[in-house]
Design a protein around this nucleic acid. Structure first.
Lengths: 199, 199
DNA sequence: TACGTTGGTCAACGAGCGTTGGCCAACATT
DNA sequence: AATGTTGGCCAACGCTCGTTGACCAACGTA
């Protein structure tokens, strides 16, 4: 049904295929299209044209459009370790800087946010990122384990809100903020959401 | 080209038409579909079926799909006046509470955010809301006129981020936050973005 | 009662989409 | 050299979409 039989799910396992270059080109083109156009308007035909291959190849390698999307947007936030009292005290700044790094050279995140806003599967995928990556990071910093989900959600709301206004909606005043300004304004917010005593 | 000749742009001007009920039903159905499905997947056929009329009626009354969208999502945030020192001191709380009210009973905002994330016209429309409504509100509260755009953008990032995680992506921990919790956490953030001395 | 205007349905068009299957060339293996 | 496997293209299917234009019924007016 899908290409699972002929596609090694673990990269690097087995002999490298002759078609790996094509596979990569498809993924790269897909990320770009999903990031700029969203799920519906990123057509397989356009992605194939960007990758200089036939649309049917996309089907062969990734089964269908959703399979391509799943393969294209594999998000790993690479959140730094934040245990240790000194790092915990600077968690806000560390996290904001890390997020800016991530968003600026990684169109996967823009693609995921754009698709998550329209597509149910995309939204569930975003929920997974919050649950599996953001929440554990908050757990390292936040004192009360019971408050971790709420605090992680608050952190997500501010970080994703910045990404939304700056990288997706491209609101001019949000685009014109410098990196230093963003860190200076948002770091205390994130720090408070994670470590301040509950209201 | 569009229905402008037969459609009074100012509601209430001229004699009320017999078709006003149908027009309203179309707009209501359109808002719902745009809010839940986004621009591309909200089909004119589905909207027409919801409104119990023929798809061609939508074309006759609103010209084309984009015209329908423009007519359906006319956003007025109804931001309260915030001049006066006492109100300025509570601007954060007032704004957060007002935004929660707006989002909870107004699917237009969800529609606009969802479409803005995928559609260029939608994104420009959101920029217009920031420029014409949020920015003047920030101007009433923020001391330094030169910093108004940056501070309004920060406020927008936090408020839209909450709306995104809670009403669009529906992340469980963000949905489970109570209204009181949101106000308690976000009001100081907004207040700081608007009135705290620049970093 | 005749007639223009308004509100509405119906059937179809052309285009673009995801998807499929058949065919062919290049390579690897024996 | 013969053959199976892999990488790739081409042409088409079936579907849905936005959009159009012809046609019809109800109404207001003269």
């Amino acid at each position: 049904m899908n290409g699972g039989d002929s596609t090694p799910t673990v990269p690097g396992s087995g002999t490298p295929r002759r078609s790996d270059a094509t596979r990569g080109a498809i993924l790269t083109a897909a990320r770009e299209r999903f990031a700029t156009d969203g799920y519906e308007r990123a057509t397989i035909r356009a992605i194939a044209k960007d990758a200089n291959i036939d649309p049917s190849m996309v089907m062969r390698y990734y089964g269908n459009k959703e399979g391509l999307f799943v393969a294209a947007v594999a998000v790993d936030l690479r959140l730094p370790d934040m245990s240790g009292a000194d790092r915990r005290r600077e968690a806000g700044r560390i996290l904001v800087e890390h997020f800016l790094d991530m968003w600026e050279d990684n169109e996967v995140l823009t693609a995921l946010l754009r698709v998550g806003a329209t597509n149910r599967a995309g939204a569930e995928r975003m929920q997974g990122v919050l649950r599996d990556q953001l929440l554990p990071a908050a757990r390292q910093v936040c004192p009360d384990p019971e408050q971790v989900p709420a605090r992680a959600a608050l952190m997500a709301s501010q970080l994703l809100g910045l990404a939304l206004t700056r990288y997706v909606l491209r609101m001019p005043p949000a685009v014109e903020l410098t990196r230093a300004e963003i860190v200076a304004w948002l770091a205390p917010t994130i720090q408070r959401y994670l470590t301040a005593p509950g209201p």
